[in-house]
């Protein structure tokens, strides 16, 4: 096996249908997407297009009905067993009874490994919460809680990082600031990352490539390369190429939505 095959995240013709008593909904149909080792891919689409399902399949939280799915060269279950994943959800899912530090340490505890105090300190520092390490989540703002969640997702130095709308519940200003910080953090960590979002700006700002999805059934419609290097900051958004790509992708999504509305 080559390095790329073993390191990345690969969906090959993945199909997933949810059946309830009366109707069945095809969330993903023949869905294919390749994320190379160290690459950051954003999965962009309207709500309900199946992008979160793709992420949950990669995390082993759902089982595909058909198709191939490899995460860092293994099945999702093997990678979970090897503690090779990091996740952050829109719901920060912090444990309210643990301090910031204990929340960040949690993956070590769950993996049954000794806590690497240095790594924990480093990450808390990286997300800028060193002064709040002893605080409880309810004493923090929403933005700070998401930073803890990001720190937690990185603490085990995962092979693959899965982010599901991590800033979806925040206001636009805070969200933008955290995007800048996340770009800085991931510039340091260089982890294979799949980000699920419905924000075009966020996708373009963070990712190396943006995969635009259509809904019902969920499939990748187009993949756009983002013409910037990894080092991004506030000036990136002022770049005309950034603006053009955002406008382009927004139009694409809009057309898809309009088509959906007509049928």
């Amino acid at each position: 096996m080559t390095d790329i095959a073993s390191g990345g995240l690969h969906f090959d013709g993945v199909t997933k249908t949810f059946a309830s008593r009366s109707l069945s909904v095809a969330a993903l149909s023949d869905f294919s997407l390749q994320v190379a080792e160290g690459e950051f891919v954003a999965l962009l689409g309207p709500s309900g297009c199946g992008k979160s399902t793709a992420l949950r399949l990669a995390a082993g939280l759902e089982q595909p009905d058909a198709g191939q799915l490899t995460v860092a060269g293994a099945s999702p279950h093997q990678i979970v067993a090897a503690r090779g994943l990091g996740v952050a959800f829109q719901d920060n899912a912090l444990l309210p009874w643990l301090s910031v530090r204990r929340n960040v340490e949690l993956p070590f505890k769950l993996a049954g490994r000794p806590v690497d105090r240095h790594r924990v300190d480093e990450l808390i520092e990286l997300v800028g919460l060193s002064d709040f390490a002893r605080h409880r989540p309810r004493q923090l703002s929403g933005g700070m809680r998401q930073r803890v969640s990001i720190a937690r997702s990185l603490v085990l130095s995962p092979r693959v990082l899965l982010l599901d709308e991590p800033f979806g519940a925040l206001d636009a200003v805070t969200r933008h600031r955290l995007n800048v910080e996340l770009a800085r953090i991931l510039d340091n960590e260089r982890t294979t990352t799949l980000l699920v979002t419905h924000s075009v700006e966020e996708a373009v700002f963070l990712a190396d490539r943006v995969a635009v999805m259509t809904g019902r059934p969920g499939r990748v419609k187009r993949i756009a390369d983002v013409p910037f290097g990894r080092h991004r900051d506030r000036t990136t958004q002022a770049d005309p190429r950034f603006q053009a790509l955002v406008a382009d992708l927004t139009l694409l999504l809009d057309a898809d939505l309009a088509r959906g509305a007509n049928t």
Binding site: R56, G60, V80, L85, L156
Partner: peptide, 27 residues
């Protein structure tokens, strides 16, 4: 206990007992 927390525990490969004693019981 919120479903998202349960998902986090599953993704980190938490065993059933860990999920109970570290998540459900304190929650």
């Amino acid at each position: 206990v919120s479903p998202a927390s349960q998902d986090v525990f599953r993704v980190y490969g938490a065993r059933r007992a860990q999920r109970f004693f570290r998540l459900q019981l304190p929650g």
